[in-house]
Amino acid sequence: MDLVLFYIAATVAVFSTVMVITRLNAVHALLYLIVSLLAVGFVFYLMGAYFAAVLEVIIYAGAIMVLFVFVIMMLNLGKATIGQERAWLRPGMWIGPALLSLALMTELIVMFVQGVDVAAGHVVEAKSVGILLYGPYLLAVELASMLLLAGLVGAYHLARPAAHVEEKQP
């Protein structure tokens, strides 16, 4: 039963990811990305990583993707970009990257399939994750928060409209 669900979720994830990279409209791609993230979150749940699943949905799909959407809305590109994207996405463009990533995928699959015993997964409770966070990984948490602070300050500074730039425009 779980296996069937896993297959369904995996298919949805792969399909929607392919959709992400082939759409012409940015918002469409974003929506497909959200679907992909949700599917992967479901896979997390099936693996027994409940905490991670929740985090995936709330933070990744819920915050980061929303941020993307906000920025795209702010840029307000309009219909012209769709024509541009069509021009940029000629079929011939896919060959090189497809080959490259096919090679990578083959290597990864070969690596993982070699000598791996068929093992089963374990459920890891949120509680044990929390204990780990406050125990051995305390420092990592602090560092992560500093990283977030840096990202916050950097994002604020970079996105600020520079006063002199605006004055120069006639």
Binding site: G96, P97, L100, S101, A103, L104, E107, L108, M111
Partner: peptide, 11 residues
């Protein structure tokens, strides 16, 4: 692409 190519070769 260059980086990826390098990674593939390394692996």
């Amino acid at each position: 692409a260059g980086m990826m190519f390098g990674v593939i070769v390394f692996i």
